[in-house]
Design a protein around this nucleic acid. Sequence first.
DNA 1: GCAAGTTATATAACTCCGGTATATAGTTGC
DNA 2: GCAACTATATACCGGAGTTATATAACTTGC
Lengths: 144, 144
Amino acid sequence: MHTDILESLLVSTHRLTRLAAQATGSTTPAAQWRTLSILAAEGPMRVGELAAASRVTQPGMTRLLGTMVEEELVTRIADRDDSRAWLIVVSEKGTKALAAWRAQLAETLDPWFGELSDADWATLEAAASLLETRLASDAAVAAS
Amino acid sequence: MHTDILESLLVSTHRLTRLAAQATGSTTPAAQWRTLSILAAEGPMRVGELAAASRVTQPGMTRLLGTMVEEELVTRIADRDDSRAWLIVVSEKGTKALAAWRAQLAETLDPWFGELSDADWATLEAAASLLETRLASDAAVAAS
DNA sequence: GCAAGTTATATAACTCCGGTATATAGTTGC
DNA sequence: GCAACTATATACCGGAGTTATATAACTTGC
């Protein structure tokens, strides 16, 4: 285990997160676009699934969704098969907000990342995809 | 700008951070070991420098340091040249706590990362070093 | 077909970590 | 030695996570 590499990644991406937070201004809390990003990538899912995907607890996700529903970024749709559950879907407003956030992110991070070479981007992409695979909700269970 | 790659990195490392938080238990808040990690890597520095390195505001760092000094993880040393300033150094207890946290991190993340190939680790290392360079306190200023 | 157990979401009370605005103390320039 | 600047600290606030528990609906066994 190369803990030092993971540690460096954790520290660096903390900085990246802070930087991104400043990019979007105070109007777009980090947890919201993270959730939107997951929903946009993986499609509608239940509260519990979303919590697992984001690796937060279910009550934490419920609370976050409360504010996101209020702001009409996502919609709760009743699950036909199980009336205890909800399907969370990104609303049109949510889609637009995510697009706007992405644009702002690109613009703000340009001074730091605008001049990367293709090889550098390839490295980042490989690392991102590697992490994504490893950190998928049930990767650890599947491996055992 | 490949915003999608950065976005994927942000989402993935959020998951990684959560995972790491669960690894260390509630006894070691994330911001504390991040700060210890920076101090250990770059040596003693002032409050303001540390805040810039961690990309948080100075009051935020001051408050964090308050609890870390209480817990004797770091020590404030008067700066001879400027009596307004303090040099923050990692204490012996802080060094041990960081080592313990690293060990626990390695152990807990093993189900997810224990079986990575050397090539995978090389990719992660390259990405980590790339981010570290780009996100150093004054990288953007230096580039312009 | 209903009681018991399980599961999905919600609520409550709490902590930590970040922010802005401002105060205080020390340094520097003239 | 006073004005302007700078380094840290204080006060107050919001966001985002936690655990423990409640509520409602589904499932299972008999």
